[in-house]
């Protein structure tokens, strides 16, 4: 017992100050891409060609779909003029799918808080059920990390629960494989209404790298209505936490 207590003191207090204190992201962290139309050479297309998921389109001016983006920087490296640059901004989520499509001059994606009615129900206690539907376990790992003492999700009244019957919503990861579609539908049906759905990671939003894969459904959106999109491959825990807190708005 004494040993346990001594070790507990030695390991110190480790919970981060977020959201009051801004997080320190690693210098090489790749967050929200910035697009500069002035720099873009019409007809060049090298960024679009380099992208592994087809996130970039150069038709009628450059656009980049964050919902498909793996933040791999292939486009940034392919662009000779610096029209695409990854920034260190981890706030990349949106409540509208269309907002994830970046264009030069267009406002960056934003999370709008849930309705007043939902806030009344979930604002102080939001219970979520997680469904991994073909996720590679990286999104799952960084969702799990939110419940460690570092992020301590519980202090915000958010908790992952063991049954859809106890949940107010679900968090989906993965491109929704053919073999997981039914399980996702059943889980969604088992959550009492009103309920919310959150898609975490490029796979769940758009299918990501597996969008065209034979065994996948191109994300959760075609199967259930998604209320919150958190891009990334996988999203940084701060991106997820930031999205959850803004959406819950309490």
């Amino acid at each position: 017992m004494f040993r346990t207590i001594r070790e507990r003191f030695r390991q110190k207090h480790r919970t981060v100050g977020f959201p009051d204190a801004a997080p320190v992201m690693p210098e090489r962290y790749r967050g929200l891409p910035r697009l500069e139309m002035d720099e873009c050479v019409p007809g060049c297309n090298s960024c679009a060609k380099s992208c592994p998921t087809g996130a970039i389109s150069c038709e009628g001016g450059i656009s980049l779909d964050l919902g498909k983006c793996l933040f791999c920087t292939a486009c940034e490296r392919a662009c000779k003029t610096g029209a695409i640059r990854m920034s260190g901004d981890y706030r990349i989520s949106a409540t509208k799918r269309d907002d994830l499509v970046l264009r030069p001059g267009k406002p960056v994606p934003d999370v709008v808080a849930m309705t007043r009615e939902l806030r009344g129900l979930f604002g102080r206690s939001l219970k979520l059920r997680q469904v991994s539907a073909g996720g590679c376990n990286a999104c799952e790992a960084d969702l799990n990390v939110l419940s460690t003492i570092v992020f301590d999700l519980g202090r915000f009244g958010i908790q992952f629960v063991a049954s859809p019957r106890h949940a107010d919503g679900i968090v989906i990861t993965g491109p929704v494989t053919a073999n997981m579609k039914l399980a996702l539908e059943k889980t969604w049906a088992a959550v009492p209404s009103p309920k919310i759905a959150i898609a975490v990671g490029a796979c769940a939003i758009s299918g990501g790298l597996f969008a065209t894969g034979s065994g996948c459904n191109g994300g959760a959106g075609g199967i259930i209505p998604v209320d919150l999109f958190v891009p990334g491959c996988p999203p940084h825990p701060y991106s997820i936490l930031d999205a959850l807190l803004k959406f819950k708005s309490c």
Partner: peptide, 28 residues
Amino acid sequence: YQHRGIEAMLCGASPARAACIAELVAGD
């Protein structure tokens, strides 16, 4: 349940793409 067809996706992939796919075989 997690079957995404990774091996089939690798057929015909360029080396760079193959590495990109391999990164997602198992996230951990």
